[in-house]
Design a protein around this nucleic acid. Structure first.
Lengths: 385, 385
DNA sequence: ATACTTACGCCGTTCATCGAACAAAGTCTG
DNA sequence: CAGACTTTGTTCGATGAACGGCGTAAGTAT
């Protein structure tokens, strides 16, 4: 029942974070006696959570035995469900990729069909990776709509017909399942991967819609109803004529989302339907498309400039389909943020494109799962069991 | 060195939060043995942190001895420095007011003069309350500008000439001093007072300028550079003609702040200079003033609608000078937020006027001080000393 | 008055942690 | 190259914090 610093969970946290790789390191970091650390480490090894590798470099005395997470016997699945696709990544405890897959899949088919597909694919990936089903500990999942994170139930998702209030975790008995908004898991993935030291970060997904994942104090901020980060319907000035599917007008998404840019291009005589079409046109060097993407960046930048003043993040990461042409999008975003935000807030602000690209969601979902499993609470439960 | 749940600090936290008032309560809540709790409580009593009051009501057996924070021997000062005023509240450990004062004081006089004044006033308040100087444990202070919270140094504050980078805590040797932005301490005060259970809350101060304090997960969010909540320079649509002192145009503050409303009134032939003049006119029933305040509310509401979508708070509290006519201001704010924010985010959202009024800052500063002193870390340090 | 309930202190037992001594496994030096 | 030194890790008795049973205190119900 104890959660004191130096408990097995904390020791494992230090190992998994890479802060400590030997027993001596752990003793120094936790302040516990070396003998105590040895006991703890032994318990973790016995439970299959940690393993010893060959000895490290000596620094003038006996060389230390290196410790690391015991990757085998544990597997975690990151699931990225989109409107029309399903990506799954199987990872070990260190976050390394074991196997992955990608399929076209309409989320509108409803939870039973979609989750059956996911379940089957996870089995196949486990087989590929040569791990038994029992090795699967936690599933992390990102879905394209608001979710009540605590229960894993979608909360009136606009593009997930049949999913409202469906208890996703119940579909996978015996495994912990964490379900979150796709933008949140992408934010988590980019944070852990590109800016692990940043305390506050925003991840902005620019696709058909526009959404934002918020990392505050290193953890996801989901808001009171789990709807935080829904910036697609923030009003931008000077576009009252643009109606949005939400019923309002001048929503960011309705003027700068992929679909909106495509519609505008079509109006200019350049046929385009989706964000992907826009990307293709830009890559083909179409100047109209290029100009409109940059203009979309300015509009997004206007909203982000407000959020920079309000939230004062250390980094903003731009992802989503349109970020494939990020030079142009980012130019518009940066231009506006630096013009409209306060110098104190922008001085140390990084504004960068996504590093993980299409993998941000699956990786983030997997990280969500792993971090849940490795949380001190959970580890202490396992060790004391 | 132990910080396990049930440590003296945690026990005291439960007592101070009012979650537990007897030893038996504590045993139930912490899961520790009654004997252990008795030891802990004894240690806290010995250190003068807790006291026993007369027995409580019996519930069929021996009546429990009530415990509470030992208010005497400990005093905390909350200091509210404004552009032209200084308010100080002396509080005991439970947050009860012992004495207070208020003076006109120009912050532009510079740190030495102002802090000397504060120091003198604190001495006087201690004398009034009959406590020795040694009883003063922590000073909490709110100042009208950005501060590096960790060091207590103002960070290029626009209206605090001479204060830039001045190490305020050094002026009070032997006492812990916490310095924060005034809006932040007001947010803290309102949260602890009016919405202690809310996880995420925004406090908006509408005065000459407009600022916002952010409570996330129950604690203040200060941002990467401590500039979070600076919403006065967010752009509002349709007011490109309004120049702002920051160099941009259409800033919220430049169109909806107290000074801006006064200027507009003057242009309409109703002479007004400050926010206070505007308040007086509204209270006198001037319809032009009333209309402009409501319109300012709409503009503020537009910005807040964005922030509601982004941050998804449980409550928004409106304070500052203009909130004295809050019926009209709030009407405009509510109207716009409910029109422009997402239903999921507004469904359980409370939008209310400040409950503490002019006392929000001093009380919040005092609470900042008390919570620092009662934090488990600090208490364990005291008990183990 | 007696039984019952609840609160709390006392005290012997238990168990986790500590730290000293020892063993292991390397580097450095004469 | 032998021996001293350094660093790592383990063993084991000492220590002390927390536990929980028991006794006592101080009420209520019958």
């Amino acid at each position: 029942m104890t959660l004191a610093p130096g408990s097995p969970g904390d020791v494992l946290t230090l190992i998994s974070a890479g802060s400590a790789t030997t027993r001596s390191d752990l003793a120094r970091l936790t302040g516990l006696a070396r003998s105590t650390i040895s006991q703890r480490v032994d318990a973790l090894i016995e439970r299959g959570l940690v393993e010893e590798t060959e000895s490290g470099e000596s620094t003038g005395g006996r060389p230390p035995r290196q410790l690391r997470l015991h990757a085998e016997e544990h597997a975690f699945a990151g699931v990225d469900l989109g409107a029309t696709h399903c990506r799954i990544a199987l990872m070990d405890m260190t976050g390394d990729l074991l196997a992955q897959c990608e399929d076209s899949l309409l989320i509108g088919e409803g939870p039973e069909k979609v989750l059956a597909h996911v379940d089957g694919r996870i089995d196949r990936l486990l087989a590929e990776a040569g791990r038994p089903r029992a090795a699967l500990r936690v599933i992390g999942m990102g879905v394209p709509g608001p979710v009540e994170f605590a229960t894993g139930r979608p909360n009136n998702p606009p593009i997930m017909p049949g999913w409202n209030d469906y208890p996703i975790p119940d579909y996978f008995p015996g495994v912990d399942v964490l379900v979150d908004n796709d933008v949140n898991v992408m934010a988590l993935g980019e944070h852990r991967n590109a800016f692990p030291a940043a305390r506050h970060l925003l991840f902005v997904k620019v696709g058909t819609g526009i959404g934002c994942g918020i990392v505050a104090e290193g953890t996801l901020h989901r808001g009171a109803q789990g709807s935080a980060g829904d910036i697609g319907h923030i009003r931008v000035s000077g576009h009252e004529e643009s109606g949005c599917r939400c019923g309002n007008s001048a929503c960011l998404e309705a003027v700068a989302g992929g679909a909106a840019v495509a519609r505008r291009l079509t109006e200019l005589g350049v046929p385009a339907e989706t964000g992907a079409d826009v990307v293709a046109l830009v890559q083909a060097g179409n100047t109209q498309a290029l100009r409109l993407v940059r203009e979309a960046g300015r509009l997004i930048g206007e909203v982000l400039a407000s959020l920079v003043n309000f939230f004062n993040p250390e980094a903003i990461v731009i992802g989503g389909a349109l970020s494939r042409v990020h030079e142009h999008l980012l130019a518009g975003i940066r231009e506006t943020i630096y013009r409209r935000s306060l110098p104190l807030a922008t001085h140390h602000l990084s504004i960068v494109p996504s590093r993980m690209g299409v993998d941000a969601a699956v990786m983030g979902a997997g990280i969500l799962a792993i971090e849940h499993y490795l949380s001190p609470d959970n580890i202490n439960k396992i060790v004391n069991a």
